[in-house]
Design a protein around this nucleic acid. Structure first.
Length: 192
DNA sequence: TGCCTGATGTTCT
DNA sequence: GAACATCAGGCAC
């Protein structure tokens, strides 16, 4: 990945989130297996936002969010799930984009082994995606320009983007910072 | 189809 | 000690 492709990650999370749609996540497992997926759903969070982990300032847990853009922020939640974010914005500003869902492109069989599920159930949710791609806190702070987890920006991105309020949170529910591809079966769910 | 709840541990108050 | 950017299974309708 070149500097040119990563530059857009320096922008505000709410502007980066829709631009991440259509980007490719490439995961190299310790076994050498390559997994690839296309991002189809994201949510933006930043330090002005009460629903964001960075809202209350930098802590040992959230310091990655305040670091340079293009790194991975992985956190553990609900006692059993991981979620992964792409850090955005300038260093010192706590912002990131949650990857909520991807469309599997390569390595579906390997994902199914970890998920014990098939089809859209492989990756249609933030914790599901992390499980399918074997992402945990050992990758917290990882630079997405290098293996074993790379973000690839394609020349062309297809799909109609829908912008709505976020889901799965208890505060700031009215902030319209969720973005997804309309009618894509791998999106976690549509707003009701 | 849709609501309810248990699982389970890290972080912060 | 409570909250939590979740998921899956069970049960009622």
């Amino acid at each position: 990945m070149s500097n040119t492709t990563s530059r857009f990650l320096d922008g505000p999370a709410s502007e980066v989130a829709p631009q991440l749609l259509g980007c490719i996540i490439e995961r190299t497992l310790p076994t050498g297996t390559i997994l690839r997926g296309r991002i189809v759903e994201t949510e933006a969070y930043d330090q002005t936002d009460t629903a964001s982990h960075s809202y209350k300032g930098k802590t040992p847990r959230t310091e990655i969010m305040f670091g340079p853009a293009g790194h991975l922020y992985v956190y553990f939640t609900y006692g059993m799930h991981y979620c992964c974010n792409v850090v955005t914005g300038p260093s010192g500003y706590g912002a990131a984009v949650l990857i909520r869902a991807v469309e599997p492109l390569q390595g579906q069989e390997d994902m199914a082994l970890r998920r014990s599920r098939h089809g859209r159930e492989l990756t249609n949710g933030p914790a599901k995606f992390c499980q399918a791609f074997a992402i945990d806190t050992s990758l917290n702070g990882h630079d997405l320009q290098t293996p074993p987890l790379k973000l690839i920006v394609p020349l062309e991105r297809r799909g109609e983007i829908v912008q709505t309020t976020r889901i799965g949170i208890s505060t700031a529910k009215d902030v319209p910072w969720r973005f997804y591809y309309r009618d894509n079966p791998y999106v976690s769910k549509t707003n009701s």
